[in-house]
Write a protein that binds this DNA or RNA. Structure first.
Length: 246
DNA sequence: AACGAAACCAACCGCCAATCC
DNA sequence: GGGATTGGCGGTTGGTTTCGT
């Protein structure tokens, strides 16, 4: 009855993935897809369980992943979504193209949570830890416009240079719609349909020829920049002259 | 320079809803 | 219909790197 076990736990490898394993997994999935994760390790020649393969692909090897720290705009979206959804990281990640639930979860626990606590905001309830309701960042209610400065302060140390985005004030309730969630949903919806860049497919064409001699992640690092930052700002309707969303 | 503490993040674990047989 | 399995999710762990003294 039922299906076979996903893997023989006694014969699977654990721990960090090697470059060779990454190579096998990417090559296999790009050639054959992943109709059934249970079959992937066997067919790809990997001594891993299907679950491990899926996680590796989803969180690290997927070609549409962004890398580096979350931008200020992304952090604000995460904060807004977390205020409404709680720890539903996959739902939050679905609104941030190129980001994984694991990445967002890690970023929340290591960065955002601490920032909010330093500001006296409860990262769980998103309400002030004290009774003082006058704090401008004390609420993420649907009809309030929260700027980056309000959340992180005008002199926060988050380095934007990695992504090329300057620290700016973004008002999410601009336009006729006052609900940041609605705006976020609308502006990010189309992003999910974006296809891989030509550079990525070119990369795949030469993947076998160029793989030898590369360290574990060099070949991926070359493809971290698909121009998604610019695309995202374009989708967001970012006005560079006004330095905010139009 | 050396050491310990803190921060970071990839990977694993366990649970659960959906699906299969 | 019901047990077994899959795929996905959130929580946690532990190895590595960075920071502070």
């Amino acid at each position: 009855m039922g299906r076979q076990p996903c893997c023989d736990k006694l014969r699977v490898k654990k721990g960090p993935w090697t470059a060779e394993e990454d190579k096998k997994l990417v090559s296999f999935i790009l050639s054959n897809g992943h109709c059934c994760w249970r079959a992937v390790p066997k067919l790809a020649g990997l001594l891993r369980c299907g679950k491990s393969c899926r996680l590796r692909w989803t969180n690290y090897l997927r070609p549409d992943l962004k890398r580096g720290l979350l931008t200020d705009a992304e952090e604000q979206i995460v904060i807004n979504l977390h205020a409404r959804l709680g720890n539903r990281w996959s739902k939050i990640a679905s609104k941030l193209p190129g980001r994984t639930d694991n990445e967002i979860k890690n970023h929340w626990n290591t960065h955002i949570k601490k920032k909010l606590l330093r500001m006296g905001i409860d990262p769980i309830t998103h309400k002030p830890l004290t009774d003082d309701q006058s704090s401008p960042a004390a609420t993420t209610s649907s009809n309030s416009a929260i700027t980056i400065e309000e959340i992180f302060g005008s002199n926060h140390a988050s380095p934007p240079q990695e992504t090329g985005i300057n620290p700016v004030s973004i008002e999410l309730n601009s336009g006729t719609c006052q609900d940041p969630m609605v705006i976020e949903n609308c502006i990010l919806e189309d992003h999910h349909n974006s296809t891989f860049s030509d550079s990525y497919w070119s990369f795949l064409d030469g993947i076998e020829a160029n793989w030898e001699g590369l360290s574990s992640h060099e070949w991926l690092l070359d493809y971290q920049d698909f121009g998604l930052e610019d695309l995202e700002l374009e989708i967001l309707g970012f006005d560079h002259e006004e330095n905010k969303l139009s």
